[in-house]
Each structure stands twice: as C-alpha cells, then as structure tokens.
C-alpha cells in the first residue's frame, strides 16, 4: 500500500529538493552559460552576465583554433575506448570462466584481482615512468591505453562477474540437452543474456577512463594529451579566458555527462564491486 502524501507536502519537497539540486548542478550550468558569452561579459557580476544580451559561439571557435582541440578530443576517445575494448577482451573470458566454472580458488583469485586496484598509483608512478621512458612510449596513446586498461581491469572483471553470475546455469544445460552445439549455445542462449551486462560494464569503464587524471597528466606532455591534460593547460591564466575555459570545459564534459546519466545504476554496482546493488 503506497503511503498517501498530501499534495502540499509533495510540493514543498519538490521545491526544496529542486533548489538543492539546482545549487549542486549550478557550476555545470554556469559554464554552459559563460561559454556562450564574450570574454568581456564573462567576468561581470552573475546577474549582469545573465541579462547581458549578447550571445556568441566565438569561444568555441577560439578554443578549436588555439590549441588543436580536435587532436586532444581524439586522444581522449582513443584512450577511453581503446582501454575499454582491450580490457573487455581480456576480462570477458576470465569473468566467464569464474562465473560458470567456479573452482575452489575462484573467490581468492577475485579478491586478489581487486587488491591490485587498491595499489595507490603514486606508489608505482616512478617505475612506470622510467619503463615508459626507456621504451620510448612516454606521451604516447598506446602507453596510456595500456595503463588505463590495467588500472580498470579489476573493475571490469568484477562487474562482468557479477552480471554473469546472475545468468542461470540451468539454461545452458537445458540448451545442451536439446542438442545445441557450443556455437549455438553461445549465440542464441548466452549472448542475449550477457550483452546488457557487457554494455554497462563498457559504459562505466569509458567514463572512468575519460575522466582519469593521474596517469594522463603524468605520462603525457603534448602529443598524446587527452582532454584532462588539455584543460589543465588553462591553469596558468592569460588575460581574459573565462569564456574560452568554459567552452573547452563544456566540450570536454558533455559527452561523458550524457553517457553518465544513462549509467547511474551500473555506476553503483561497478564502483562498489557488487557490495551495493
């Protein structure tokens, strides 16, 4: 039985929660507004900014022109998607085997994999940096793809494992009894049940890799710098730059904001390693 709530109380809750939500969201909203203002307008008092009538997209073209924005965007895409795909390629068989052919040690293996995620990145920064320098892959996309794949691999395996574990094994046996070949079993029975889990795992991992800002800042300088590092170049101010910084920021976070909103549920499962569902 649903609890009945008076309309006035519901209105009050909505107003209160809406105001709080808007306050939390405000910085994001604000940079969207500033990004369409001229540099001169962008540093005015908030109300003046809001009611200044000039709207312009010139900051967006200025950002593109000034710093080779498309290159950094492409780097982010390659690094985020590359590390995710590579991670899935290695994690899917592993998670699969652990979910469907569990052995006595499976639990220990899983826990151990998780423990590698606890390693603070700064603890292994120096060796990775020196190895990369010697291999000549500092500031290279391939180097970052590998590092980000490694730091997120435990999360990918765990997430896939929790999804695969929910697929009932009986279904497989039933299919086998009906004379399905292994190939048919995989294509017609397993894949439809496993794909949603794999998709949400990929989604969460793309978000994590896109926003990763320790390795991307420390292992790149110019050539392979993704958006996290590109934005960091605005930390030394030059003249008026609020509108340009806003435009660059909006372009950097917009794609992932959209993906993130779709993945709220998976986020909880993935980041708590299945401890909260």
């Amino acid at each position: 039985m649903a609890r009945s709530v008076t309309t006035s109380r519901k209105t009050m809750t909505t107003l209160f929660a809406g105001t709080l939500g808007l306050l939390i969201f405000f910085p994001v909203l604000w940079i969207v507004i500033l990004s369409f203002k001229s540099e001169g307008d962008a540093i005015k008092a908030p109300l003046e900014v809001l009611f200044s009538t000039g709207w312009t997209a010139e900051s967006y073209s200025a950002v593109q022109a000034r710093s080779d924005y498309p290159k950094h965007f492409l780097n982010s895409v390659v690094i985020a998607f590359g590390s995710t795909l590579l991670g899935l390629l290695i994690a899917i068989p592993a998670a699969w085997a652990m979910a469907f052919v569990p052995a006595k040690r499976t639990k220990h293996v899983l826990m151990w994999m998780l423990s590698t995620k606890m390693l603070p990145p700064v603890g292994v920064l120096i060796p990775i940096y020196l190895i990369y320098r010697d291999l000549g892959i500092l500031d290279s996309r391939i180097g970052l793809v590998f590092v980000l794949m490694m730091i997120n691999l435990p999360i990918i395996i765990w997430m896939l494992f929790t999804y695969f574990r929910e697929i009932p094994g009986e279904v497989l046996e039933a299919a086998r009894m009906d004379g399905a070949s292994l190939r048919e079993e995989i294509i017609h029975v397993l894949a439809p049940m496993a794909i949603p889990g794999m998709a949400s795992t990929a989604l969460l991992n793309i978000i994590l890799a896109w926003n990763e800002a320790f390795w991307t800042l420390n292992l790149t300088s110019a050539k392979a710098a993704p958006l996290t590092a590109f934005i960091a170049s605005y930390s030394s101010p030059e003249g008026l730059f609020y509108a340009k910084l806003s435009a660059a920021s909006v372009m950097a976070i917009a794609p992932i904001l959209v993906l993130g909103w779709f993945s709220q549920k998976q986020l909880v499962r993935g980041l708590t390693f299945g401890a909260v569902k």
């Binding site: 939390i24 994001v28 978000i207 926003n211 996290t228 986020l267």
Partner: peptide, 9 residues
C-alpha cells in the same frame, strides 16, 4: 552530474 565532471575541469 558533478561526479562525471573531470577533475581538472
């Protein structure tokens, strides 16, 4: 939303 904003931004 803030969770999806990259740290440098």
């Amino acid at each position: 939303a803030p969770f999806f904003v990259m740290p440098t931004v």
